[in-house]
Amino acid sequence: MSTTSLHSHSRLVPRMAYAASQSARVAWYLGQYMLAARLGARITGRDRVRHPTDKPVPDTRAILEELRALLARDLANIEAGWYRLPHDLVPDPRRVLADAAAFFRDVPLVSRRRRDHVATEVRANPPPGSESLPAYYRQNFHYQTGGYLTEESARLYDHQVEVLFGGGADAMRRQALVPIAQHLRGRRSADSRLLDVATGTGRFLTFVKDNHPRLPVTALDLSPAYLREARRNLAPWARNAALVQGAAEAIPLAEGTQDIVTCIYLFHELPPKIRAQAAREMARVLKPGGILVFMDSLQYGDNPAMDGLLDIFPQAFHEPFYAHYARDDLEALFAAAGLRPRERSLAFMSKLLVLEKPA
């Protein structure tokens, strides 16, 4: 076999593995989305799941085309060496089935909250230890059981998000690995520091650590339950992965200590004033020359074909601050905090910003 043939073969095998796994992933999660929508409609009433919008709403075919483009970009990044194939390309089938069963047990509860517009159960009946958390946080975001405050919610969250995005959530998150790899190029990762703000279950950090195992990371989150789930997920890298309970608007770290700050899907769930405070805090803890890698939902005008979905989303899923976020001037917000934009791009339903603290 020639050198060219060997090279082609070495690329073909991971490409086939990626294509097979991601095709199965999309079919699995998209199928659950469609079934959950059907089951939920029996409770909410079909007339109540049609939300008004005067903006374009993409059909399933258009959404799948956007998802295919995301997966093609994900594979291209892997082949370019920006990050590895996902560490759980073939997930544990027992966990996959258990999570699906738990998800469908929760669908009726979520649907009843949606029907009855009940979104503050966790404030009325706070789980132990959550009473002192900020009021804006003590809500049943997405109408999910337990909000962000229970072990059951933390266990189920990543599965729920994958169902919502038809199996594309991890691929969207992985786009944030590219600017991290670019920033670390030529640096010793062991001498750098990364802070993940609102880490949730630590899912994104598992991708970071899988690619940069010697990079010290700090996982910050308000929820003790989600931090416990993050501890389990980050157990293989526990030696240089710290977990800290704290708020994005009051980060309990010293000024100028972080080379990279990441913030994935937080800002659309923050009130406007808290959003501005969080931006200032992330800028404060960055070193001069450090970067903020920010990913969140699309905003109006980013992809006009998707604008109708931005109308529907906060109505269908309890998101009290989303409508303001979708119109917020993020670059002006970060500029006021002392950060300047370096890159911007779209990835399916998300936007990625890379901002720098001037040296």
Rank of each mutant, 00 (worst) to 15 (best):
R173T: 06
D296S: 06
V49D: 00
R94P: 02
A336F: 12
R280C: 13
A169H: 10
S5K: 12
T44V: 12
E162C: 08
D311Q: 04
P14V: 07
D329R: 13
D329T: 11
V197F: 04
R342Q: 15
R94L: 13
L71C: 07
H7W: 05
A276W: 05
P127Q: 04
V163Q: 00
H9A: 14
G147C: 03
I312L: 02
A254G: 15
A181R: 15
R327Q: 15
L164Y: 11
A100S: 10
V178G: 08
R113N: 09
G167R: 01
N77E: 15
H212A: 04
F348L: 04
A278T: 13
D54G: 08
V208D: 01
R68P: 01
E249T: 12
R84P: 04
R95D: 14
G45T: 02
L333R: 11
L97E: 14
L6S: 13
L85R: 08
A283Y: 03
Y148R: 03
P216M: 04
L195A: 09
L353K: 07
Q160M: 15
A98L: 14
L234E: 01
A17M: 11
L156C: 08
R239Q: 13
L352V: 14
Y33A: 07
G31E: 03
A337Y: 05
G81M: 12
P56D: 14
T206P: 04
A36M: 09
S5G: 09
M34H: 12
P14I: 04
E281L: 09
R61K: 13
D59Y: 10
D116H: 06
H324K: 07
T201P: 04
P91R: 08
A135T: 13
T257M: 11
A19H: 08
G81E: 11
K55D: 00
T262Q: 12
S189G: 09
V178K: 14
P252I: 15
R15G: 14
L39G: 05
V96E: 03
D92K: 06
D328V: 10
K209Y: 06
S297W: 01
A337T: 07
S223D: 11
